[in-house]
Amino acid sequence: MPEITLNKPKKSSGPSAIGKSYLLAYNGVQTLGWTYLLWQSLVYFLNRGTLDAYWNEIKWTLYIFQGGAVLEILHSLIGLVSSGALVVFMQVYSRVFLVFAVLMVVQASTVSPGLPLCILAWSITEIVRYSYYGLNLINAVPQTLTFLRYSTFLILYPLGVTGELLCMYHSLDEIYEKKLYTISFPNEWNFAFDFYYAMYFYMFLYLPIFPYLFGHMLKQRRKVLGSEKKSKCN
């Protein structure tokens, strides 16, 4: 089956010339940004830096380039890329939430050992992903990059999820003590929200969602890398 779909010409003609140059620039900038973040982190820890000052060292790089990922939702909304907006939203959401709703606000999460895990997993994934998208626009993806695009997740995805869960776990006590994002009864609109319990619930959601997304990636991997081998044999 996959061979047939690969041989089919793509239905859409792809983005216009302006759209294409914009996407090239966007993916190029993102590749460089995440490379810089990885570089910053390596230099920091090789210089025997400790966890308590690490966040201040990298936070602006992370704000800019993780925040920049929100543009991807916009890209799919205006039809610049073919992937569905909802799927892109879900992919971008969990990290934007962690960076801007947890790390930016809860000091305890920034000194969690989960943070360097996240940064390591995220930056390598994004360097591979954005350079793949960029080179794909000009049909110049080397085979090694395709292999990396569909292989690094095997290690980096569980690593990243562990990092994310650790950061959230270390934020819990501070959220409880400072009553962060918490609205309590009584109030006129009878609305209550407890971020502490919501966080527990949210972490619990990783349990069904992680295996689902990991399985999805495995399927993609089989489809792309598996069919390549087959077509080489033919």
């Binding site: 009864f185 009584p186 109030n187 006129e188 009878n190 609305f191 209550a192």
Partner: peptide, 9 residues
């Protein structure tokens, strides 16, 4: 939960 809360207004 919200409507039957003891502190409902």
């Amino acid at each position: 939960y919200h409507i039957n809360h003891p502190l409902y207004t």
